[in-house]
Amino acid sequence: MNWRGAVTIYKAEMARTGRTLMQSVLAPVISTSLYFVVFGAAIGSRMESIDGVGYGAFIVPGLVMMMILMQSVSNAAIGIYFPKFNGTVYELLSAPISALEIVIGFVGAAATKSLILGALVMVTAAFFVPMEIQHPLAMIAFLVMTSVTFSLFGFIIGIWADNFEQLNIVPMLIVTPLTFLGGSFYSISVLPPFWQTVTLFNPVVYLISGFRWSFYGVSDVDIGISLAAIAGFFALCVVIVWRMFKTGYRLKT
């Protein structure tokens, strides 16, 4: 196992974040703060509580999840896409480093960044709304699993993308809508029955529901199903990444 190689990639990716601190850390924190100001304080003060949780507090898990999903996907995607774009991917391919080690480096770094941002958003949220975390261990487990899984998903997009448009299209056109429609800002129980059923096909619903359960002990779907959903998506991403490296898809000619 070439651990040094994996750690080298990990450190280089973290250093890249350091170089773009404004864009990678400050911007997401500011945009999340705006959500709290608008939805939490301004609109939230006129909303009824949901399942006994004040609206401002209700949206915290959803916002953290939204941040984690979008940042994981875009960080991991750009992480592997950039070497492809500037040609330095030759270094990775010609080094004595396995696919697993490359993935640990890139996905590990992207997930770490997401976790840091997730923590920052929660700290920011605490300034705006009263929060409680009923199941802290479950919350951390959900955070880590989601960060890793969606970083893996972003990594797949980074390998697949042939240009910057493709790089952005999945986060913009798939991840963002799924997150908004996944119950970040509402409980799916408020939807008409038909749309409730449709919503159950959105994997993000399970993530947000499970994550919210770890905070307030209330959820839209069973916590076991949430865990199974995230585990299933993780397994699917692992298989796809494994196939990509095995066949050299868009990495080797």
Binding site: N86, G87, Y90, A95
Partner: peptide, 26 residues
């Protein structure tokens, strides 16, 4: 390997780029 195309990360420092390459090789 020194490839034909100019393939470098423009924002890395020289010493870091070399150290990175060494690290990849374990």
């Amino acid at each position: 390997l020194v490839p034909q195309e100019m393939s470098i990360d423009m924002f890395t420092k020289v010493a870091d780029a070399v150290a990175y390459a060494r690290g990849l090789f374990g």
